[in-house]
Design a protein around this nucleic acid. Sequence first.
RNA 1: GUCCCCAUCGUCUAGUCAGGUCCAGGACACCGGCCUUUCACGCCGGCAACACCGGUUCAAAUCCGGUUGGGGACGCCA
Length: 495
Amino acid sequence: MTETRLRFPPSPTGYLHIGGARTALYNWLYAKKTGGKLVLRIEDTDVERSTQESIQGILDGLEWLGINFDEGPFFQTDFSDDHCAAADKLLAEGKAYKCFCTKEDLDAKREAALAAKQNLGYDRTCLKLSEAERAEKEAAGVPYVIRFKVPDGERVISYDDRILGRIDCNIKEVDDFVIVRSNGKPLYLLCNVVDDIRDRITHIIRGQDHMTNTIRQVLLYEALGAPIPVFAHMPLTLDTKKAKISKRSHGEVVTVQFYKEHGFLPWALSNFLVLLGWSPGNDQEIFSREELIEAFTLERINKSSSIFNFTKGDEKFFTDPKAIAINEHYLRTMDIVELGELVKVELQQDGLWDDAYEGERQKWYHHTLSLIRDRFHTLKDFTTLGRAYFADDFAVEEKPLNKNVLKHEGLKEWFPMLADRYAALTDFSLEETERVARELAEELDIKPGILINGMRTVVTGQLAGPSMFDILVTIGRDKVVERLRDIDKFFPAAA
RNA sequence: GUCCCCAUCGUCUAGUCAGGUCCAGGACACCGGCCUUUCACGCCGGCAACACCGGUUCAAAUCCGGUUGGGGACGCCA
C-alpha cells in the first residue's frame, strides 16, 4: 500500500482564518492517522495579492496551533516551469487551445448573460477559429490565454467523495476554463493539479466550495495522464446568518491570531474547530492529540455546513460560547506545570514575572494558579482578574467597591484593627485568619460578611473568587495587612 | 439563468448506510435548585429539534419521490 500524502495549500492573500485552520487540521489529522505525510504549499501564483506578511501570518498561526509539516513550505511560483510545461503539453496534444478574446469582451458577455438570465459559460469563440484566423492573430501578436478544451460528447464525470459519496456531473455543464493567463502565468486550476501530481498527493481534503473545481480538475488529471486522488469535501463554516465567514465582515474573531492574542490554549481551539463538522460518533468532546488522531476518520465528517456561533458585540461571549467552554475546560484540568509555563508568558508580557516562581516560590506559584484558575476563561484572566496575586497595581472593580466597601464607612476603622491583629498572629493560617475575622466581627457586633466581602474587594479587587481565607493565606500576610491598612484611599477625603 | 451539495434542540452534534430498543441521546448556551458569609467552580434538575407533503412498510428521524429552505460554484482569484 502506498503512503498517504496530503497537503495544505493556502494562498497568502490574508491572515490564516479559522476555516483554513480547520482544513489544515483535518489534513494533519488524516496524515497522522494514516502514518502519511503532510505537505505545506504556499499557492502564491496571484502575485498581485500575495504578501510576505500573509505568508508569515499563516506560518505563525499553524505553528501556534501545533500543526507541523513533513515537507515544505514549498512555493508554487518556484514550480512555474512545471506548470508551463504541462500547459504546452496540453496545447501540443490538442487538449487546450489559445483564446484571443479580450477580458473586456468576456466580462461584457458574462454581464449580458447574467442580466438576461442566460447561462454563463464560455461560448468557444476561439475554438471555432480557423487555422488561418488563428495564425493571423498570432502573427499580429494579439495576446491570448490558454483554455482547456473540455472533451466533447455525452459523458458524466464522477468521483467518489469520501464525505459526500458519489458525485456526478454532466460534462456538458463544464465550459472551457482558462489555465494560463495572457501574461503567460499559469492559473490555480492547472498549478494545483500539476503540483499535486508532482508531490504525489493521494488525498485532497478541502472545502465544499471547491466542488466545481474538482470536476474540472478531474478532467485535467485525465488529460495529464495522472491517477485521480481521493477527494473529501468538507462542509463550510458559516456565520449565524449563514453567510461565509470572512475577516472583512466579521473582523479579527475569525483569525487564528485573535485566539492567540486572547489567551486561548492552542489545543483548545483545535479541539473546538475539529468538532465543527466532525464527531467521533459517541459523546466524547474533549480529546488529547493522540485520542483525536486515533478517533478521526473522513467518513465521520459531516455533510452539512456548520455555524460559527459568534454574535458581534456580545460582551460575555466574545467568540463562540462552545469555544470558550472548551478553553475553560482545559484551563482548569490541564497539568499545572504546563499551565505555569503558559501563564509565565502572560506575566512576562505584563512585567509581572518573578524568576522566584521557578525557584523558591514555585510551589506557591503553582498553588496560586490552581486556586484561581477555576473561574477563569482565558490565559489573559491571570493578569487581569488575577492580577492582585502577582502585583499591587490591580484594578478594583466598581461593583464590589460600592457594594462591599463604600457602603460600610466603619471599614475605615475596622480594617486597620483587623490588620493589626493579622500582623500580630503567630500562625497566619486558614483557621486563624478566619477565627480572628469572626472574632472581630463579633466584638464590633457586625456581620462577618461585611469584613469578609470587604476584604475580598480590598485584597483582590474582585466581587467573586476563591474562599476568602484561602486568598489571605495565598497572598500572604504582608500584602494583606498592607492592603487592609490602606483602606482610606477608597473613601472620598474626609471633610 | 445553469449545475452541484445539504436539511435533527438557539448552536455543535448522536441516531440515517444495515427501518422497530428514539413520544429522539450528549455538549454548549439558557432557566431553576444545591453548595457557598462572595462567586463566573462543582453537583442535581428543567426548557428545547426529526423543514413540509406524499409513497413503501405491520412499523420511517431512518428507505423512495416531490416541495420548500439554506449553502456553494459559474474569474486572465485561490
